[in-house]
């Protein structure tokens, strides 16, 4: 509201009204800043995004991030999803991870998961105790199955290794696709 032509008292009152609205907006924005905190957590969880975790924060315990990555070879009607994309590993400890494996076709499907590590030298410090990649798998039509891998982290794992990515790629079984 243009107050230039108003008498002084009314003008001051009108100006003050505008100022109070702006002050409230500013106060609300402090609330917004704090609101970003729960929103961030919800957002990360909903989208399955990785965020900092307490179990990885303790530098003295030489924790290692193990990240899981999945790929499907072209044309294969299957899907592999890590249920926890990132887990913490400790020297001498076990790491267990679960995946959801789905057959998206209406026919039975034979496939095999082939693992690889990045960085490559990390492979030496991780021993697979149990893995769905040990054997060929056959899924019934539209079947969804949970599969697991259990890794033993070597005592000798160097602390500076920091993070390891374990990647699985699904391939069709020879002659049975």
């Amino acid at each position: 509201m243009n107050t230039a032509a108003m008498p002084a008292v009314e003008r001051d009152r009108a100006n003050r009204r505008t100022a109070i609205k702006l002050g409230i907006a500013a106060a609300a924005m402090v609330g917004f800043a704090y609101g970003m905190v729960p929103f961030y957590n919800v957002f990360c969880e909903a989208l399955g995004l990785d965020r900092a975790r307490p179990e990885l924060a303790d530098v003295h315990a030489a924790a290692m991030r193990v990240e899981f990555d999945t790929n499907v070879s072209a044309g294969l009607p299957a899907r592999l999803t890590p249920l926890q994309p990132v887990v913490a590993g400790r020297a001498g400890g076990l790491v267990k991870a679960r995946f959801r494996l789905e057959n998206l076709s209406d026919a039975p499907l034979g496939l095999r998961a082939v693992p690889s590590y990045a960085p490559e030298r990390a492979g030496r410090f991780l021993t697979k105790m149990e893995c769905f990649c040990f054997n060929a798998l056959t899924l019934a039509a539209r079947e969804t199955r949970e599969v697991t891998v259990v890794l033993l982290v070597d005592e000798a794992m160097p602390a500076e290794l920091g993070a390891v990515t374990l990647s699985y790629t699904l391939f069709p079984l020879e002659g049975k696709a």
Binding site: A26, A28, M29, V30, F32, A33, Y34, V37, A57
Partner: peptide, 28 residues
Amino acid sequence: IAVAPVLAGAVTMLLTDRHFGTHFFKAV
């Protein structure tokens, strides 16, 4: 008016993380 309060909020969180035991930015 929209963003100066957001900065104030952010540094206040730093302050409480430093001295008053909050964990906004502390992974631990």
